[in-house]
Computed example of a mutant assay.
Amino acid sequence: MTTRTFRIMVRGVFDGLIDGQRAELLAAAPEHDVLHAAFTREGHLSYDLSARSAFTFRFLDEGEAEEDILAATERAEQAAESWLTARGYGFKNLRSQAEDLSQAPLGKRQRRAANAAG
């Protein structure tokens, strides 16, 4: 069996932050800038609290079968919730979007490389 790679985005909105939490997030904002966003196994958080209270976690996971994406999505949601809860950050409207990269359409360069190899 081949290994499938899944990219999962867990989105939500910070809710009920107190001034100290907001200041803490603003101080850490440069490391959570969307320009540095990446899909990682441990999850990467990005937000721009000065513009809006939304956030996105990006996770990378693997599985062997197509249906493994459901378990990967559940793990990503739990990891995001745990990270937020451990820091005392309130949140709401948590939702996920997952993509199986083995099912993703090839980009122009990938099609060209596949045609050249074949």
Rank of each mutant, 00 (worst) to 15 (best):
D15K: 11
M1V: 08
E99W: 07
P105Y: 13
F6Q: 02
E66H: 11
F59N: 00
E24V: 02
M1Y: 09
L94G: 08
L101S: 11
D33W: 03
L17K: 03
L25M: 05
A71Y: 14
R58W: 00
S96L: 06
L106P: 01
Q110L: 14
V13S: 12
T2Q: 14
Q97C: 05
A29Y: 10
V10C: 05
L60I: 06
F59Q: 07
L60P: 00
R41H: 12
F55G: 00
G12S: 03
E74T: 00
S53G: 14
R22E: 01
K108Y: 05
D61C: 03
H44W: 10
R111T: 05
N93T: 08
L94F: 02
R109Y: 05
L60C: 02
Q110W: 06
H44S: 14
H32D: 03
R87W: 13
Q21N: 00
F6M: 09
E66D: 14
L26F: 03
P105I: 13
L26E: 15
A116D: 13
E31M: 08
W83G: 00
T3Y: 03
F55E: 05
R95A: 09
N115P: 01
F6H: 06
G43Q: 01
L45Y: 11
A117Y: 08
L45Q: 07
G63M: 06
I18K: 03
A114L: 15
G20K: 13
F6W: 05
A54C: 09
L26C: 09
L45D: 10
G16E: 08
R11F: 07
R58H: 13
G90L: 11
E42H: 03
S82E: 12
F59L: 04
G90I: 00
V34D: 14
E74V: 10
W83E: 00
N93G: 07
D68N: 07
K92F: 00
T56E: 15
D100G: 02
N115V: 08
G43R: 05
R4S: 01
A27W: 08
A27H: 07
E31A: 12
G118I: 10
R112D: 10
D61M: 02
A27M: 15
E67S: 11
G43T: 09
I69Q: 08
F91A: 06
Q97N: 10
S46A: 10
S102K: 06
L45V: 06
V13L: 14
L101W: 13
E67C: 01
A23S: 11
L94S: 01
A76R: 04
L49N: 02
E74M: 09
S50M: 04
Q103W: 08
R111V: 12
Q103Y: 02
T40R: 15
L35P: 00
T3K: 12
T73G: 09
L106N: 07
K92T: 15
A28Q: 12
M9V: 11
Q21L: 05
A72Y: 11
S46M: 09
G63K: 08
L49Q: 04
Q103R: 10
K92N: 15
E31K: 08
